[in-house]
Amino acid sequence: MLSGAGVIFALVMVLLVLPYRAQNGPKGETRQIRVWIVGLGLAFPMTVLAALLGYGLFVGEQLLPRDLPDVVRVGAEGRQWAWTFTYEDAPGTTTQDVLHIPAGRPVDVAITTADVIHSFWVPRLAGKLDAVPGRANILRIEADAPGVYQGLSAEFSGAGYDRFTFSVTAHDAAGWQAFLRGDER
């Protein structure tokens, strides 16, 4: 996408510089309209955009949470300025500002808020999704390897916004079981 944008930008710049160099003879207005407006203005962007849109919708579909057998379900509730995480597999367990997930398994995060709008964003795991009052938005994330991933709240939420971060700890299978049993806490 970036290189495509670069090529288009370079093309426009060249088209801007050329009329200062070349001496164009007078051509028919109809012909110029056909070249500039119909060709470059209409047909060219329509083609590029159709391709881009198709690609975007396709990728967007792939990212949607689909029903899989081993999905882990967790909850995330934002408030000014902390996240509380809950676990379907370990009822009663809550963690503050650290979300524990198993690595290598799809995880559905049900995101909601106790006060104002926040946004749940772990850049390396998925795109962001808002925490909207009265709703639970489902975000599918998956960590390929165990480790710690930084997360941010990405919707302006008042005075404590800049410090409003959290982290995601992805465990291997054994570590996940240990977490669910409560060994780690």
Partner: peptide, 10 residues
């Protein structure tokens, strides 16, 4: 066009 291209209520 998304009417025929994308999933509807997901």
């Amino acid at each position: 066009a998304p009417v025929v291209m994308t999933s509807h209520c997901g």
